[in-house]
Amino acid sequence: MNSFPLKIVTPDGLLFDGAAQELIVRTTSGDLGILAGHINCVAPLGMGQAMVLTDGKRRYAACIGGMVSVVNGQVTLVPTTFEWADQIDVSRAEASKRRAEQILQDRSATDTQIRLAEARLKRALVRKGAAQRK
């Protein structure tokens, strides 16, 4: 299988720099799979799991926000947060999920609070989902 250069970088640092055979990310308009020789393309990322196939091994991660771009074969993934499945703190995600659910059930919560809680709940679910796939 042909491979392509992939860079994954977040504000916390360069997380991956090397050759990959396949990349699947969740964009705002659905899952996007990238193989070697992909056309130049940009897409904003949504919240979801990412999969990187490198050296014949599949690695999963929770990948939230940011963008993915392919320019002349160079694939760059610039998410806001990116956590490999084996590095996710499941208990933290669980706690975050519970807190968000509490706020959502609270009838006196304001619109902003509800919006924030929804986003938090979604992030927590993505993290939990990704952590189960390691």
């Binding site: 504000p11 996007l32 056309i39 130049n40 940009v42 897409a43 904003p44 963008m67």
Partner: peptide
């Protein structure tokens, strides 16, 4: 030598609307 055809997913306006704030935030943080 970057080719001029770029695929925007879903479309260019949506891409820029989503990416520019991210970009600004990243630059600000840097």
């Amino acid at each position: 030598g970057v080719q001029s055809d770029m695929l925007y997913e879903p479309d260019s306006t949506a891409v820029f609307e989503a990416i520019v704030p991210e970009y600004l935030g990243g630059v600000l943080y840097g």
